[in-house]
Design a protein around this nucleic acid. Structure first.
Lengths: 195, 195, 195, 195
DNA sequence: AATGAATGAGTCTTCATTCAT
DNA sequence: TATGAATGAAGACTCATTCAT
């Protein structure tokens, strides 16, 4: 047998690329930057990925999948809607902050490779099913449509991602706790619940 | 006379570039694309702008300035905070939708040239001054800090921009009215006002 | 006004490329070989030709056109069919030998870019119209079809080209005069004429 | 047993390569194309052939040898020169058409690996010895030199190969029968024989 | 001022061959 | 012996910017 493909190498390429794409941008990162960063020869990059595009696409898809699957599991578990929402806010929003590289790539240059619509649709469905039981209690929101719900979700979700990105890259004194705090407040206020 | 002609050309370059950057992305648009689109010779592009970067920067700065100045004026005018907020939502958010090209550029590839932090800071100050009188009425929000306010603003502002971008580019059935409607609801709910 | 495209440069690129393609083959000639040979920078090659392919295609088309137009003129002039055929053999076959680079390219690697069928069709028409009056005299050939004529022509024409190529490149003692002499003999013999 | 299997693989590589070289050209066929086509791993290709070049060379040499040996045998057998020539035309020219892949490779890209001169020399000797007795009868051809004979042979032989190649690849309505028919006619006419 | 040819560093990617397993 | 990952020089081509005219 010849050598087998080495998952460690594959991940190393992915990790270095993610960092570079996020810091310098997809288009300002050259394959030779990745070569320099990983220490692998060019050819090796291309035995693991067909193209530069495929690298971003993989970063986005695998990053998303990891996050989303966990969210899904958490929502499938026992517990009141309130409890689940609390988990979402306290556990999964912070987790996004841990992978800002991923977010940067998701939102900016690679947006063409990102199929973000599909992701948003799935997230809408998940969230809507979660929020539905809570709507009954709120007279005002009783007939919140899926469309409005989606508008809300997109604004919050993408807003949070962008905010997280800004918080990192800029001198703005924006902290993670401000963001989760604000989200909690909005939800408590809107649904009349206490998280 | 010569002055007029110059300004026309300058705007023409800006307009074509904005369209191209927004549709194909900054890095996928070459100067020769701009040449083709405008019909001007390369040299001419460079007599009006020092570099490709300067073109984006100009698009962003001028686009922002136009929008922001009007917002500022509206807020400086007479009227209750509620009235002003209503104007913001009903007049200036929709205006953002009219210039999605500008937004796309602002948010994605050109983000390096965008100095978005400065813009957000100014917007925070403006909004905070606007909202302050309303906070007094809300027991819950009484001690909302500027930082939290900024977190909120960033999330909403960038979230709306991203949502607008998505609404345009994708098959998601997201409409302008969903977005403004949602914003109104949130604010009414949060501040206990009726817009 | 800026500089104008320089026909001298264009021809220089064409000439160098023809020599290189012919000697080393199309695929074994790199753009940087052409750069080295011409002394022009890469960029310059590409301001005159869109691609490497376009260079071969141009060599073949322009080379063919030059030769064919002259053949056509000669055949359009006054004179008996025999005289015209003599001219063809004595003047235009030798001329092919003068541009063996062109022939090598035509026949070998670039054959995909060559549209040789179209060329052969035109040549068949021309030759057939020329030979027709002579057919009447030959009982045997009286009903030579255009198809057979074309078979003959292709065999001779391509055969001669290949022979010329071999004559140059190899140690075979094959001389131009052998080829034209043989052609004359065949024709005299076949049509019962004296050239 | 092991030997059998080996030879099968070797021939399989040769067959696939011939097809690919002929269809896409030598330079446009990569070793990994051959890998894909044969289903063998790269390493295996290289245990049977030292290099890509050696594959073409082998295709050409073995293809030639097969054809030539049979020609030689046929010519060595009893019978009048006319009978032998008839056999050549009716049996061996058609056989060339059966292996157009081989011809394509022989004539075009692989010409560097082809040592075609040596082949032509041998063929000239064979043909000359065959034709010699027929020359005596023809006053005109009596002093046909070997050189002229070779010119003729090259023109016809390569011309036929090229014609065969064209007949296959193009929309030209050129048929095998046109080619053999034409050859017969030329020979009958030139040598005053009836085939 | 207007023009557009000139430039060359830099881009992504390929691929024949080797050699560790 | 069989395998296929590893390699890196070399490939074609791009493009922002300059500057001669």
């Amino acid at each position: 047998m010849a050598r087998m493909k080495d998952e460690t190498k594959r991940l190393s390429i992915l990790e270095s690329s993610k960092m570079l794409f996020s810091q310098k941008g997809f288009f300002n990162t050259s394959i030779s930057d990745i070569v320099r960063e990983t220490g692998f020869p060019v050819g090796t990059i291309y035995t693991y990925f067909k193209s530069k595009d495929e690298i971003v696409r993989t970063i986005v898809e695998e990053g998303w999948q990891q996050w989303y699957e966990q969210v899904e599991q958490a929502c499938a578990s026992e517990g009141s809607p309130e409890a689940k929402i609390r988990i979402l806010i306290d556990r999964f929003i912070p987790r996004l902050f841990d992978d800002l590289d991923f977010i940067s790539i998701l939102l900016t240059e690679a947006i063409d490779y990102t199929r973000i619509e599909a992701k948003v649709e799935k997230l809408t469905d998940l969230t809507f099913s979660l929020v539905k039981p809570m709507l009954a209690r709120s007279q005002m929101l009783q007939d919140l449509s899926r469309d409005s719900m989606q508008a809300a979700l997109i604004i919050f979700f993408l807003g949070i991602l962008d905010a997280a990105r800004l918080a990192r890259s800029s001198s703005i004194g924006l902290k993670e706790s401000h963001i989760t705090g604000f989200m909690k407040m909005i939800i408590e206020n809107t649904f009349g619940v206490s998280l």
